[in-house]
Amino acid sequence: MSSPASPAGTRSLILERLLGDSGDAGQVIGAGRSMAERALPFVMKRLAEEIGAPVTVDLQSVEVARVAEARAVSGSCYAMTTVASTISSDAMTMVMDAVAVSVLVCTLFGGDPEQPVATIDRDFSPVEIDVATLVFQELATVLNGTGRRSLELKLPVPRAVTGLEASRRVLRDGPAVRIVFALSTPAERGTVVITIPQRVLLSRNPAEVDAEDNSRWQAHFSEEVKRSTISLEATMPLARLTLGQLAGWRVGDVIELGDMAQTQARLATRDRTLFVCEFGKLGNNYTVRIKRPHDEAQDFMDGLVQE
């Protein structure tokens, strides 16, 4: 990449590298980390069940980067593929280093995961390329997502390349987010670097998607709560009595209700008053008719006046 021709160009490049297209590195990293963390358990499951490779997958880092630097952290020997989407020809660049390829090939073909493996220091063989492509496919499928969160990748992924062909692959530069997954066994640890341009990552509007998901879950939860059952209790107030009068009560005594008791029934659940009601009778059934919602503030004021 050529250097900027002016101080203004240099400043623009520095700001772009620090902040990215969004102008907010935190937003970019947050969106990338959220996507990676959601995908991680599914990646582990697919590698174990679909491929049969007994490797551990960890999220190593998420950071702001450049698309042109997609190969920078993988050494001189790596496998690479670039996946297109509906809005970009380079929506996802995936690079697997030699250690990760060695680990996968070894474990996939029955090697002992407890033992160190010989790291490949040459161009990969067709079989090794096929294994790398298979893992790229699983990662891209999981990271792609579904619905409004989807990156809309064009799958299956292109077959991986290595050696001179990979190094000659031109990457259109621009701000990106770099997601690094570690593939490891007890003896070895390799990496898969996934670089997504910010224009692709932020086109999903993750804040809007997450807000929509939250609203949908809140609505679902509210409906479930509405279906739950509770016990209601209707009570009527007695006249105000002294403790001496209360102490004088005996079994069989009849207690007179106050003049307003029938119109001041309280409907409550779990010790919380909901409505003020009127007690009555309809046919053979006793009833309470709701008069108004219970006002705690007014009830408190009425209590002070009575005292």
Results as ranks from 00 to 15, higher is better:
residue 213 D to K: 14
residue 83 V to K: 01
residue 12 S to G: 10
residue 292 R to W: 02
residue 163 G to E: 05
residue 279 F to E: 00
residue 34 S to D: 04
residue 241 L to C: 08
residue 107 T to H: 05
residue 105 V to P: 02
residue 69 E to H: 12
residue 254 V to A: 12
residue 238 L to D: 01
residue 272 R to P: 06
residue 300 F to V: 13
residue 30 G to S: 12
residue 204 R to G: 00
residue 159 R to W: 03
residue 254 V to L: 12
residue 34 S to L: 13
residue 246 L to Q: 07
residue 197 P to F: 09
residue 179 I to T: 01
residue 175 P to I: 10
residue 256 E to A: 15
residue 211 A to E: 12
residue 58 D to A: 15
residue 32 G to Q: 02
residue 22 S to L: 10
residue 86 T to V: 15
residue 243 L to V: 15
residue 201 L to D: 02
residue 251 V to C: 10
residue 1 M to D: 04
residue 305 V to W: 02
residue 190 G to P: 00
residue 293 P to D: 03
residue 245 Q to F: 11
residue 250 R to C: 08
residue 251 V to I: 15
residue 277 C to F: 01
residue 22 S to M: 03
residue 132 A to K: 07
residue 189 R to L: 06
residue 29 I to Y: 05
residue 214 N to V: 15
residue 238 L to I: 07
residue 137 Q to Y: 09
residue 38 R to K: 15
residue 256 E to M: 13
residue 14 I to V: 08
residue 210 D to Y: 13
residue 187 A to D: 01
residue 258 G to L: 10
residue 132 A to G: 10
residue 297 A to Y: 06
residue 214 N to I: 15
residue 21 D to Y: 05
residue 148 R to S: 09
residue 156 P to Q: 04
residue 205 N to V: 02
residue 204 R to A: 10
residue 278 E to C: 01
residue 262 Q to S: 12
residue 140 A to N: 04
residue 275 F to L: 14
residue 257 L to F: 05
residue 105 V to R: 05
residue 169 R to V: 06
residue 47 L to A: 07
residue 11 R to D: 05
residue 272 R to N: 09
residue 40 L to G: 05
residue 34 S to H: 13
residue 290 I to C: 03
residue 146 T to I: 09
residue 194 I to Y: 01
residue 113 P to V: 09
residue 298 Q to Y: 05
residue 118 A to F: 07
residue 135 V to N: 00
residue 6 S to L: 12
residue 1 M to N: 07
residue 281 K to T: 09
residue 179 I to E: 01
residue 145 G to D: 03
residue 81 T to K: 01
residue 9 G to T: 05
residue 17 R to Y: 04
residue 263 T to D: 03
residue 244 G to N: 06
residue 304 L to S: 03
residue 177 V to M: 04
residue 76 S to Y: 04
residue 192 V to H: 02
residue 162 T to A: 14
residue 70 A to W: 08
residue 251 V to S: 14
residue 171 L to Q: 10
residue 291 K to L: 11
residue 144 N to V: 08
residue 256 E to C: 11
residue 199 R to G: 02
residue 257 L to W: 00
residue 216 R to M: 07
residue 118 A to K: 12
residue 187 A to V: 09
residue 8 A to T: 03
residue 4 P to Q: 05
residue 207 A to E: 00
residue 140 A to S: 13
residue 79 A to I: 02
residue 260 M to F: 07
residue 101 V to M: 02
residue 279 F to M: 10
residue 46 R to L: 11
residue 290 I to H: 05
residue 30 G to H: 05
residue 67 V to N: 08
residue 216 R to Q: 08
residue 127 V to M: 14
residue 147 G to C: 11
residue 157 V to I: 09
residue 153 L to G: 08
residue 105 V to A: 12
residue 37 E to Q: 14
residue 125 S to L: 15
residue 149 R to W: 07
residue 101 V to R: 02
residue 78 Y to G: 04
residue 146 T to L: 10
residue 55 V to Q: 03
residue 3 S to R: 13
residue 264 Q to T: 03
residue 64 V to E: 01
residue 60 Q to D: 00
residue 158 P to W: 03
residue 284 N to P: 06
